Simulated assay, not measured.
Amino acid sequence: MQYCLVTLILFISILIYFRIADHFNIIDKPNHRSAHTQITLRGGGIIFPIAFIIFCLFNINEALQNYWSFGLGLLAICTVSFIDDIKTLSNKVRLSVHLISVILLLYFTGAFALMPFWIWPILFILIIGTLNAYNFMDGINGMTGTYSLVTLSSLAYINREVIQFTDNNFIYYPILACLVFLFFNFRKKAKCFAGDVGSMGIGFWVIGLITLLIMRTGEYKYILLLSIYGMEVVLTIIERILLKENIFEAHRRHLYQLFANEKKISHLIISSVYAILQLVINVFLINFQFPIWGDILIVFIPVGTLYIGLKLNLKKEYNL
């Protein structure tokens, strides 16, 4: 009953936001990087910080005691991202807020107490890099929602069946938010896009859960729960460096962009394939025990080979 009520509140919240976004003209206009051609409401990902607020209201004592630092970090990064969706902010402002949010996230996960201080800068770079990877991959209908849903569902299974590392509701609420968001986004003509507030918000939540799991178990293999995103972004950055392109400028070199823009494959098919590939990897990670280097080789050799092969074929076919 609780989850039905939460889902209903999320539905009502996003419908209210649609009216606000329509009134204030908060829209996404296609540009040279976009894989879509129609003007669409932006910022639908505001449902993710709303989901956290609802979580706090339904679990107020636990939220105040255990989740306050995470909540401050999430709301800070979502606020600056939402403002950036409406009006472009300077990189200094965004990076400063990201840094503060990551500090709060690492405090929440206990990383400062569990990890030596010389590891902290590495954690900052990894988390901020992963947050931006989440943002880079949010380019077609369904991608952010389906991928996040697979990762969160895997974390929920681990929490229930393998090792409990957090409260179940702390995973279930963003899952419900993903389902509601996908109802409006997993369409040929999406009702809304996540915007930076959505990609950064759900990315922050997913990264927080994975970091918390790693800190509780000492198992670094759980980084691979985001391996498809990580591999695509890293290989694309390497490609752009080799081509002597500015890696900070907008582009359309991601594999999913080539499939959507050049091959004209349905966004929903592409998003589903990415989610299914990550699900297969997650099932492997959960059910088989290998050293971390073994997991990395088993995951990245076949997937990386497939990725590079598809990319080369597409570049050859379209003279890219």
Rank of each mutant, 00 (worst) to 15 (best):
G195E: 01
A250I: 00
V162P: 09
K189S: 13
Y222D: 13
C192L: 07
Y256N: 09
R216Q: 13
T217M: 06
F184D: 03
L243D: 10
V206P: 08
F186P: 05
N246A: 00
T217S: 12
F170P: 00
Y256R: 03
L258Y: 11
F186T: 10
K244M: 02
I171Q: 12
Y229L: 15
F181N: 08
F184W: 07
K188F: 04
L182P: 05
T236L: 07
I241F: 06
L179K: 00
V197A: 09
N169A: 12
E219C: 06
I202T: 11
F183I: 08
T236K: 04
I171K: 09
G195A: 10
I241V: 10
M231Q: 14
K244Y: 02
S199D: 05
I241G: 00
G201P: 04
F248K: 05
V197P: 02
E161A: 15
N168Q: 15
N169V: 04
V234C: 11
T217F: 01
L242E: 06
I228Q: 13
H254M: 08
G208Q: 08
F186Y: 12
K191M: 02
P174C: 08
F184P: 02
V180L: 06
M200V: 13
G208N: 08
R240K: 06
E161Y: 14
Y222Q: 06
H251Y: 06
H254E: 06
Y256I: 07
S227Q: 09
L224I: 09
N185P: 09
D167I: 15
Y172L: 14
C192T: 15
C178P: 01
T217A: 07
L258E: 13
E239V: 12
P174E: 09
R240M: 01
L235Q: 05
R187K: 14
N169G: 15
R253D: 07
G198A: 08
K189P: 06
V206L: 07
I163S: 14
I202D: 02
P174G: 08
F183M: 07
F170Q: 13
K191W: 01
I171Y: 02
V162Y: 13
E249I: 01
N185H: 02
A190D: 02
L224T: 05
L176D: 10
M200Q: 15
L179G: 05
Y173W: 08
H254Q: 07
G218Q: 02
R253S: 14
Y172F: 13
I247E: 00
V206A: 04
L225M: 09
A194R: 03
N169F: 12
Y229R: 10
I175F: 12
M200C: 10
Y222S: 06
A177H: 01
I163F: 13
N169Q: 13
R253F: 12
I241E: 00
H251F: 00
L226W: 08
T166V: 14
Q257K: 07
Y172E: 10
D167M: 15
I247F: 03
I163D: 09
G203I: 12
D196V: 00
L209E: 11
E245G: 03
R240N: 04
R160H: 13
F170G: 06
K189C: 09
E232T: 03
G195D: 08
T166P: 03
F181I: 03
Y220H: 08
I223E: 12
I207C: 05
R160V: 15
W205T: 07
N185Y: 04
C178D: 03
L242F: 11
E219F: 06
I247K: 00
A194C: 09
I210F: 14
F204P: 01
L179N: 01
F186A: 06
V233W: 05
